[in-house]
Write a protein that binds this DNA or RNA. Sequence first.
DNA 1: CGCCTTCTTGAACGGTCTCAAGCCCAGTGG
DNA 2: CCACTGGGCTTGAGACCGTTCAAGAAGGCG
Lengths: 242, 242
Amino acid sequence: MTQIDLSPKTCANCPIRPRAICSRCTADELMELDKIKFYKTYPAGASVVLMGDPMTFVASVVSGVATLSRSMIDGRMQMVGLLLPSDFIGRPGRDKASYDVTAVSELTLCHFHKKPFEKVTHATPHVQERLVEIALDELDAAREWMLLLGRKTAREKIASFLLICARRLGRKEGESLHLELPLTRDAMSDYLGLTIETVSRQMAALKRDGVLLLEGTRKVKIPDFSRLLDEAGDDSDGATLS
Amino acid sequence: MTQIDLSPKTCANCPIRPRAICSRCTADELMELDKIKFYKTYPAGASVVLMGDPMTFVASVVSGVATLSRSMIDGRMQMVGLLLPSDFIGRPGRDKASYDVTAVSELTLCHFHKKPFEKVTHATPHVQERLVEIALDELDAAREWMLLLGRKTAREKIASFLLICARRLGRKEGESLHLELPLTRDAMSDYLGLTIETVSRQMAALKRDGVLLLEGTRKVKIPDFSRLLDEAGDDSDGATLS
DNA sequence: CGCCTTCTTGAACGGTCTCAAGCCCAGTGG
DNA sequence: CCACTGGGCTTGAGACCGTTCAAGAAGGCG
């Protein structure tokens, strides 16, 4: 989980450029952004911001995994977003955080001070444009998740989660698909609106039924991808893998 | 529910201007938009678009209520958005509908042909800017809803729904707050991730406990707003009413 | 009036949660 | 080497909340 990247951090060799907020930027625009950016690495488990905190920056995930979550006064919590490399954190035009952001693995962010970022935003339509796309993509993901939370069974929820992970993190090896889960069972339960016990039981059930193989608790093999699709209950949105 | 508006439909007397996609536009920009817009009214119950349909337009809700929903092959469905006047439908840059859009009351939309709208979007930063805001607001609402779907009890779900309705549709009359529910029990159940029976039972329970009064099935009085806030389980986000 | 549709109410079932142990494994210290 | 510890995970038994199935009430409208 703890990968050490010794290469210098510059826009030129940035691994997330193709999908990030700056993907459409010209060389000139990149230089503008470059002036106001800074990198920071958080250890696993660290809190990046807490709901209600003043937000003085926006950022892109460069490496690692973070979660967005909301919680109720009595402690119940629901994860509302999973942030993987290239995902964007923060909202221009709002000065208080609407969610808790937590690093679940070692996490490196590319920060922009918010005020200057907003200026750049107004001046460069390419950033604004990409921001609309990102926001609308996240909106689609959130709504997909609403269907999962409101209507899917525990088993379908687990299968859907594996599907999402497989699409973004999986690697084909021969016939089957390998992936390493980015979350603990506990975090999975927060994501899926379940308890940790139910997550554990359903993982066991899917294993028993041959939908997946487990190596340890995090490494998963999917022998038959279409089987997983069925289990997730989605009306197959094509795209076997990116 | 069926209001007939005989006034001529023009941007000049548009009731939703302050919040709509065009709210920031200058007179010149409005004229550009005016060229590519057209109004259309749908009867209650009509389908506006179905998931997967080609989307040739985007639109704003002028009057009436519409819902966004997704459904699974076996018929389970989850509402993922409630569209009230001034809300925006559609997504520039995508040509297939991601959800079903349904009119739940008589519904009037202000349509823009998508292609020309996208051009205007690129040319006028004010529209782009407002689009980012709208998308991010919807994202916040969707994530709030995820907390509700994943973690709240049936009773809390009903109370939260009433709260949302009260905030956007309620009118103070003396001490108490009056509002007319925009949805049937059935649509409420789709929204809240419940069954219609549970909705009915919990409405009855809230009535029994004095949280609300019912006149018929749609007209609701809230004698004590802060009581409703408690029942919803939210960490009071201030804003008693608009 | 009868016939819709919408809503309410009741009884039984079942999926998920709660509570409580116990397992596995890595790390630590004797 | 072992014993101990703590975190993450699994497993079991029972309770509970919301669903399912079924019937009936309340309007709206011919």
